[in-house]
Simulated assay, not measured.
Amino acid sequence: MANATTRPIGKSGAFGWNKAGFDIDISPLVACTMALQGVWTTCRNPNRRQHVMH
């Protein structure tokens, strides 16, 4: 995270990640951010039993 900055996306307050240099890999940071967003916005009920269809 020390080598990443944020950039605004649209006018709703959303943001994206920018890397500070050409040799910086921010893909793990982006992946973690997207996973966290998915956890916050999921509508899945973890107590619901799911069945596999064959």
Results as ranks from 00 to 15, higher is better:
Gln50Gly: 02
Gly16Glu: 07
Gly38Trp: 06
Thr42Asp: 12
Asn47Arg: 02
Trp17Lys: 05
Gly16Arg: 10
Gln37Ile: 14
Thr41Met: 09
Gln37His: 13
Arg44Ala: 14
Arg49Cys: 03
Met34Lys: 11
Met34Cys: 05
Pro46Ile: 08
Arg44Lys: 12
Arg44Tyr: 06
Trp40Ser: 07
Leu29His: 05
Asn45Lys: 10
Asp23Met: 13
Met34Tyr: 01
Trp17Gln: 06
Pro28Glu: 06
Cys43His: 07
Ser12Cys: 03
His51Gly: 00
Asp23Phe: 15
Cys43Met: 09
Asp25Asn: 10
Phe15Thr: 12
Thr42Ala: 08
Ala20Met: 14
Ala35Arg: 11
Trp17Gly: 05
Arg7Leu: 07
Ala4Glu: 02
Phe15Gly: 03
Pro8Asn: 07
Lys11Ser: 10
Lys19Ile: 15
Pro28Met: 11
Pro28Ser: 11
Arg44Met: 11
Thr6Tyr: 08
Thr5Arg: 15
Pro8Leu: 02
Gly16Asp: 14
Val30Arg: 04
Asn47Val: 12
Asn18Cys: 13
Val30Trp: 02
His51Tyr: 05
Ala2Gly: 09
Phe15Ile: 09
Asn3Leu: 09
Arg7Cys: 05
Trp17Tyr: 09
Asn18Met: 13
Trp40His: 04
Gly13Ile: 15
Thr5Trp: 11
Arg48Ile: 02
Ala20Gln: 14
Ala2Asn: 08
Ser12Pro: 02
Ala4Ser: 09
Ile24Val: 15
Val30Thr: 06
Ile24Cys: 13
Thr5Leu: 10
Ala2Val: 14
Pro8Ala: 13
Pro46Val: 06
Ser27Tyr: 02
Ala4Asp: 01
Lys19Tyr: 08
Ala2Ser: 09
Met34Gly: 03
Ala35Tyr: 04
Asn3Val: 04
Ala14Gln: 07
Gln50Pro: 00
Ala31Lys: 11
Gln37Met: 14
Val30Asp: 01
Lys11Trp: 04
Leu29Thr: 10
Ile24Ala: 14
Trp17Glu: 03
Val52Gln: 01
Leu36Lys: 06
Trp17Phe: 15
Arg44Phe: 07
Cys32Glu: 05
Met1Trp: 02
Leu29Arg: 03
Ile26Gly: 03
Ala35Val: 03
Pro46Gln: 08
Ser27Asp: 08
Thr41Ser: 13
Arg7His: 04
Asp25Thr: 02
Lys19Ala: 14
Pro46Asn: 08
Asp23Ala: 14
Gly21Val: 04
Arg7Ser: 11
Gln50Glu: 12
Lys11Asn: 10
His51Pro: 02
Gly13Arg: 12
Ala20His: 10
Thr33Trp: 03
His51Asp: 00
Pro46Phe: 05
Gly13Pro: 01
His54Val: 06
Arg7Trp: 07
Lys11Met: 05
Thr5Ile: 05
His51Gln: 04
Asn45Gly: 10
Val52Met: 00
Gly13Ser: 15
His54Thr: 08
Pro28Tyr: 11
Lys11Phe: 08
Ser27Leu: 08
Phe15Glu: 08
Gly21Tyr: 05
Phe22Ala: 13
Asn47Gly: 07
Arg49Thr: 11
Arg48Cys: 00
Lys11His: 06
Ile9Asp: 01
Ala14Leu: 09
Asn45Ala: 05
Gln50Met: 04
Ala2Glu: 09
Arg7Ala: 09
Asn47Cys: 03
Asp25Glu: 06
Asp23Gly: 12
Trp17Val: 15
Gly13His: 10
Phe22Trp: 11
Trp40Pro: 00
Asn18His: 07
Thr42His: 07
Phe22Gly: 11
Ile9Thr: 10
Lys19Met: 15
Phe22Cys: 00
